[in-house]
Amino acid sequence: MTLSRIQQPVLYLLLILASLAILFPLLYTLSSAFMSSAESAAYPPRLLPSGLHFANFVQVFQTIPVARFIGNSFVVATAIMLGQLITASLAAYAFAFLRFPGKALLFSLFLSTMMIPWEVTMIPNYLTVRSWHWVDTYQGLIVPFIASAFGTFLLRQYFLQLPKELFEAAKIDGCGHLRIFSRLVLPLSAPALATLAVYSFLTNWSNYLWPLLITNKESMRTVQIGIGMLQFEEVTAWNVVMAGIVVLLLPSLLLLIIGLKPLVRGITAGALKG
């Protein structure tokens, strides 16, 4: 679309207003994180701190085990991401390239899992994990999530778009499926794998209800639960709460900066043009 000279400034004005509206909660968080506690509890509320009170951040690290929470979330989200990449790429390969009885049925079974809402499985899963004594363990936080129908679907669509001639050539050269999978399909699918990796990491980093249910020990809690703890322990000290949020937001912001491009590209390439 092209715009006339008059339209351009209007467009920029709209974009800037929209950006301010979207950024406002985050900028206000950042600003409050540097306020003194008197400033953060003042009315009328202040937009900017009088100085940079780094003491808030020190206090965050003293109140909750930030490093432990970030570490836990990182271990859990990374393990789930790797697990999903492995299980989904294997299943997607089978659905894309192998011939076997029951293929259509199994594929619709996979897709149907996307329809089962989490609440239906939540109660029995909690009972299962508890009966295995997996409460307060990493495996309890990780294992239920290491297969992904969404990921299988995404990768299958991508695999099917790869040029067929390559496989014919590889087969004539006598390559077996394991070799084609590991030497040909996986390297060629790097963009789709990156999309799944970013998507999976971000969604699992944000998990809230499951960690809340199956962790009791403070040392096993994740970032999402940790933020809640900050709020309940220091009810009035909003500046400290906001400092905590800034610290806990940094890792996912960093990932979004790195991952935005593969995310946009991957969604265009695979997920929607099924």
Binding site: L23, L26, L202, Y208, V223, I227, L230, W238, L249
Partner: peptide, 26 residues
Amino acid sequence: FIFSLPMAVSVGTGSVIWMILYHPTL
């Protein structure tokens, strides 16, 4: 980038941020 930013905010973090924005007195 700005319009995609909320994606990096998890629902737990976002809720606490909005809690202060919605604070009864502040």
